[in-house]
Nucleic acid binder design. Structure first.
Length: 633
DNA sequence: CGGCTAGTAAACAATA
DNA sequence: ATATTGTTTACTAGCC
């Protein structure tokens, strides 16, 4: 066995600094994480991202070029133009075309340059508008009146129209707008933005939602997803625009597909975001659809927002599904079989749609072993990207037991170089309890670690030291002299003692669970998407952000451990210390999950009805993982 | 800010 | 003699 360990050490011998897993406590907080994620994200840029990246680069180049031209053509007194932020001088030059005559423009610029300039101008206008929109969204959320926002929108519209008219007058803009121009106008049209913002600002507790979007773990995802997605959206929209289409000419084509299924029609009203127009029958609806939601600037802008909303929801859904599976596994229920996704997301009614959303992920969640690895998160990249921070003390908030987590994700941890979100103590305990005799030698514990976790196939010196350290340190691990040497066992009582009571229904937890379940998350998503759509155009594209890192990180936002975190979770998702011991799960035996849950596995019904369907583990009391704390005192 | 828990590193001793 | 096992201490970091 010593040989085995030795060879294992030799085989893996990674240096502590090689990226993903940083071992020094100084570096594992930031450097290791970032290094690992960045490295992997590099290789996986979607075509959409590439497209957007190219656009961004072109815009940057055009912006610089325009800056040079503007500063060169302006009077010498235009120094302040150079000094001020980039967007300001450019937009000023753009909005004041009289500063540069068309003749000068055409002399200076070749046609391609003109084209680039135009596109750049348009993009900058779009940026401006979005920036203002974002700022005004914040204003709205802070209590400012929507009136000011509307006025600003009108102002922006006037600016834009004036600008376009000027350009057209000067012959710089073709009468048939380019795709970029379309996208500009799509984004610029105040009516649609107004509509969008009205929707956003109209939803209740928008401010809370935004806070949640910023503060919750969603934020980790939103930063990832939205870093890529808005680009995708903005890159897509122009492509979908008809090259010869007049902006305000209704086009039937884009909605013909709806005539058969009409996912936008339900309960006698139009489901178009923000519309809710009443339509008596399908014919009227179709008419309404073609009239009100034709392919125009407003519709495309709304569509773009909707895409972002969906993206956010998918991320949120991934998280919630993961959590749900863990919860159900813990409760000895069959993991929820995702129901067919036969209903579109209804982002208009956040108050009731979150329930459906979290259940409606299309074929999203296969069965346990791969739930974390499979992800559902569209932005997932390689598992190896994600190395969670070593110290994840924010755990304990979510009631995922180690056993169910491992049962569900064993394949994932087996193959992905991801640090499991459990403490060494809980892992050791789990390893020991999993063994037939509930006792393991140190080397067997080692082997269990390496067998179960790819992460522990490297840096062996470190974690083995940690294992030994934990075995010695914690009284719950008892060394027993055996015929074949010393073995380690678990003293459950000590182990439970060791764990401080947690999850006693703290407001924080309840808040987390409620918000995590989705209420408000739609608002948050909506707003985050909107905000991000603004920000994403303001910042240079953070293409190297590690989406999977954060998303997967979030997937196991550390649950430290089985027992103490799980034991007090009641069926309402809140926590109650009054649960009877019989209701505690038996994580070690999670594999043999009884199939007592039959009916509706949708989250809400589950949460509502879990009380009556809780199985009562009847086997092997002594192995009970979650001893009630009160019995110990 | 302090206490607590956890992870990491390391020194050291006992043992195979 | 060497590697493994086990103990202990010190330090750092995150959370409450």
């Amino acid at each position: 066995m010593m040989v085995e360990s030795a060879s294992e050490t030799i085989r893996t011998t990674p240096s502590n600094q090689n990226g993903v897993s940083s071992l020094s406590s100084q570096s594992d907080g930031g450097g290791g994480r970032e290094g690992g994620s960045n490295g992997d994200t590099n290789g996986e840029i979607s075509p959409v991202d590439l497209l957007h990246l190219q656009q961004q680069q072109a815009l940057q180049a055009a912006r610089q070029f325009l800056l040079q031209q503007a500063s060169g053509l302006n009077s010498p007194g235009s120094n302040e133009v150079k000094q001020s932020p980039v967007q300001v001088p450019v937009s000023m030059a753009m909005m004041s075309p009289q500063m540069i005559t068309p003749q000068q423009m055409q002399q200076i610029l070749s046609p391609p340059q003109l084209q680039a300039l135009l596109q750049q101008q348009q993009a900058l206008m779009l940026q401006q508008v979005k920036t203002k929109c974002f700022l005004f969204l914040q204003c709205l959320q802070l209590g400012s009146k929507q009136l000011a926002f509307q006025q600003q929108l009108i102002q922006m519209q006037q600016l834009q129209q004036q600008h376009i008219l000027n350009l057209q007058r000067q012959g710089l803009v073709p009468l048939q707008p380019t795709a970029a121009m379309q996208s500009l106008q799509q984004a610029m049209c105040p009516s649609d933005l107004q509509q969008l913002w009205k929707e956003v600002s109209g939803v209740p507790s928008a401010e809370d939602a935004l806070k949640q979007a910023e503060g919750l773990d969603l934020s980790t995802n939103s930063s990832n997803s939205t870093s890529a997605f808005p680009k995708a959206a903005s890159a897509h929209i122009p492509l979908h625009s008809l090259p010869n289409g007049q902006n305000h000419t209704p086009k039937r084509d884009s909605h013909e597909e709806l005539s058969s299924s009409h996912p936008l029609y339900g309960h006698g009203e139009c489901k178009w975001p923000g519309c809710e127009a009443l339509c008596e029958d399908m014919g009227q609806f179709i008419k309404h659809l073609n009239n009100e939601h034709a392919l125009d600037d407003r519709s495309t802008a709304q569509c773009r927002v909707q895409m972002q909303v969906v993206q956010q929801l998918e991320i949120q859904l991934a998280k919630e599904s993961e959590r749900l599976q863990a919860m159900m596994a813990h409760l000895h229920m069959r993991p929820s079989e995702p129901k067919p996704f036969n209903q579109p997301l209804n982002v208009i009614s956040p108050s009731n749609s979150f329930v459906r959303d979290s259940d409606a992920y299309p074929e999203g969640l296969p069965h346990p072993p791969t739930s974390a690895a499979t992800p559902i998160t569209p932005l997932r990249q390689g598992p190896s990207v994600i190395i969670g921070p070593i110290r994840r003390r924010n755990s304990d908030k979510y009631c995922t037991p180690i056993a169910s987590e491992l049962a569900q994700n064993c394949e994932f941890y087996k193959n992905a170089d991801v640090r499991p979100p459990f403490t060494y103590a809980s892992l050791i305990r789990h390893a020991i309890l999993e063994s037939p005799d509930r006792q393991l030698t140190l080397n067997e514990i080692y082997n269990w670690f390496t067998r179960k976790f790819a992460y522990f196939r490297r840096n062996t010196a470190t974690w083995k030291n940690a294992v030994r350290h934990n075995l010695s340190l914690h009284k719950c691990f008892v060394r027993v002299e055996n015929v074949k040497g010393a073995v380690w066992t678990v003293d459950e009582v000590e182990y439970q003692k060791r764990r401080p009571p947690k999850m006693t229904g703290s407001p924080t937890l309840v808040k987390n669970m409620i918000s995590g379940l989705g209420f408000g998350s739609l608002n948050a998503s909506y707003q985050a998407a909107l905000a991000e759509s603004s920000l994403s155009l303001l910042n240079s594209p953070p293409m190297m952000t590690p989406p999977s890192a954060a998303s997967l990180n979030m997937l196991h936002v550390g649950h430290d451990d089985v027992s103490s975190t799980v034991e007090q979770v009641n069926s309402n998702g809140s926590c109650s210390p009054t649960l009877s011991p019989q209701q505690y799960s038996h994580p070690v035996h999670v594999k043999e999950e009884p199939t007592e849950v039959e009916e509706d596995s949708r989250p809400v019904s589950l949460l509502a009805g879990v009380t009556h369907s809780l199985p009562l583990p009847s086997d092997e009391r002594d192995l009970e993982e979650d001893l009630p704390t009160e019995e110990l005192e």
